[in-house]
Design a protein around this nucleic acid. Structure first.
Length: 466
RNA sequence: GGCGCGGUAGCCAAGUGGUAAGGCAGAGGUCUGCAAAACCUUUAUUCGCGGGUUCGAUUCCCGCCCGCGCCUCCA
């Protein structure tokens, strides 16, 4: 089954094939660093992580660029309020974003690029657009004239003939010919930061950075562009307009958009104030693993309702997965291999891949894992699972974890070492042998206090970090 | 008003023209010094509502109801 993605542009499921053999050029709209990124934002980044890992599992080589928007109205306002330079203000949130990403086990893109490092490139592209008559100036700002790009609206299915009755149309602080034209270069206002350029002193509009950085590092036509659904219009529509007007070529081959994380039936968003940051949730005692699992366990194109019950369920699900991994690692198995069970493993591996291949249907892929775990547990109980079946089962778990990455528990720095734990476990086993259950239970309770759980299985004592 | 997505058990959530995955929670049981883990059984005669097509529809078509998102802050 080939890898297929839903392309927002065509509104269809399409077989994925990069333009350049095995190399995938991919661009992601990253965060605007004016605040801590909330877990709704992280849903999109987690989706991109699953996408990356799935692509690699299929043998593709990634060249993935993600931008950090480090100049923008809210950033400027925030920095001014706090009396900080733009750099000092954005640095702390950029670092927080990277730290949170690491806690969620999100892979770093191959390149992380900053808007403010590409001002010159943006100015050159705006000049190029002006030469091709796609822009006009007004009060020191430069605008893109969408009337000059007939394809405008194809991605978002926006009908330019009108249909915005009932929609809010902001009165812009700058003069525009048409309310839907967008700004490429904003004239500097008193007290604001600005860059001197042939366009005058000012700063870039929001959309231009993504076109510039995507094309600079990945070429004029890229394979995959991702973001949240709220970026479809106007951001991605505008990216297409300016990029294609500039190059005359198709900008993006596959547009992938993640749906929103919801809270009590509404989109989680900063402006609604109904958001949680990763830090908030960790403070409440939940692990980043559980959040990662929750965010990626539902297919990315469906709205996902965030609840703490859901988070608890996610944590319990991870427990089940880890318990199975431990059981495999500690199992005492009969000799030989059972070909029937080996076939069961092969089926599970195929089903898992088929789920991901189907537009990253993680829920379907997970079902394949859990069904397999049940069958494998039963087979270990009955003896149908033999030594020779272990390698296949472990390979499947690795295949699963290469994408989901939730099996390895966090080991805190102040935690007991493996050797210390083993020693206590041996003490307890000795106490048990002597029928000194009080002492055995005391050791177990003491370890539990340190986050170590002991379990007596028929294959011996097993311990794990909670 | 335009465009898009969705409504499946207590909660989360797959899915298909042929009779409902999986997870969590709940109930009963097996195992066990206890605990935990694990396994077994059990929990939707039914997939928002009403029509239609069909031998057969949750799945296709039509209409309706409800929720959410976007329509220039937005992942």
């Amino acid at each position: 089954m080939p890898l297929r993605f839903y392309n927002t542009y065509s509104q269809r499921l399409e077989q994925f094939q990069p333009q350049d053999g095995r190399r995938v050029r991919m661009y992601t709209c990253g965060p605007t660093v004016y605040h801590y990124v909330h877990i709704g934002n992280f849903r999109t980044f987690a989706f991109q992580d699953v996408l990356r890992r799935t692509l690699r599992a299929r043998g593709f080589e990634l060249d993935h660029v993600m931008n950090i928007t480090d100049v923008e109205d809210k950033i400027i306002r925030g920095a001014m309020e706090r009396g900080l330079s733009l750099d000092d203000y954005t640095r702390q949130y950029t670092e927080a974003f990277l730290e949170d990403s690491a806690n969620l086990r999100l892979e770093q893109p191959e390149r992380l690029v900053f808007a403010t490092h590409h001002i010159g490139d943006m100015v050159r592209m705006i000049e190029g657009l002006s030469e091709k008559q796609h822009t006009y100036s007004s009060e020191g700002s430069v605008y893109f004239r969408i009337g000059s790009f007939p394809e405008y609206g194809r991605l978002s299915k926006i009908n330019l003939a009108g249909n915005i009755a009932g929609a809010r149309v902001d009165v812009d602080e700058y003069e525009k010919d048409d309310a839907r034209d967008f700004v490429l270069w904003k004239a500097r206002k008193p007290g604001e930061p600005g860059w001197d350029s042939s366009l005058g002193c000012g700063r870039p509009g929001w959309h231009i950075e993504c076109s510039v950085m995507a094309m600079k590092y990945l070429g004029e036509t890229i394979d995959i562009h991702t973001g949240g659904v709220d970026l479809v219009f106007p951001h991605h529509e505008n990216e297409i307009a300016q990029s294609e007007a500039y190059t005359g070529k198709r900008f993006v081959r596959y547009w992938l958009h993640a749906e929103h994380l919801m809270v009590e039936g509404q989109k989680m968003s900063k402006s609604l104030g109904n958001f949680f940051t990763l830090r908030d949730i960790i403070e409440r005692g939940y692990s980043p693993d559980a959040i990662r699992y929750l965010l990626i366990s539902a297919p990315y194109r469906k709205q996902l309702n965030f609840t703490f019950d859901g988070l608890k369920a996610a944590a319990t699900s991870i427990e089940r997965l880890r318990n199975f991994m431990l059981r495999l690692n500690n199992a005492r198995l009969g000799a030989g291999a059972n070909p029937e069970f080996e076939a069961r493993t092969d089926t599970a591996r195929r089903d898992f891949d088929a789920g991901l291949d189907d537009d990253l249907n993680t829920a379907d892929a997970l079902a394949a894992v859990f069904e397999y775990i049940r069958d494998a547990n039963t087979a270990m109980d009955t003896g149908a699972f033999r030594e020779g079946n272990l390698a296949g089962a472990q390979a499947f778990l690795q295949q699963f974890d290469a994408v989901f990455d939730v099996l390895k528990p966090l080991v805190r720095e102040d935690a007991l070492s493996d050797a210390e734990i083993e020693a206590r476990v041996a003490d307890r086993t000795a106490a048990k042998k002597a029928k000194d259950f009080a002492r055995a239970d005391a050791i177990r309770a003491e370890l539990l206090q340190q986050g170590i759980v002991l379990e007596d299985t028929r294959d011996g004592v097993r311990w794990k970090r909670k």
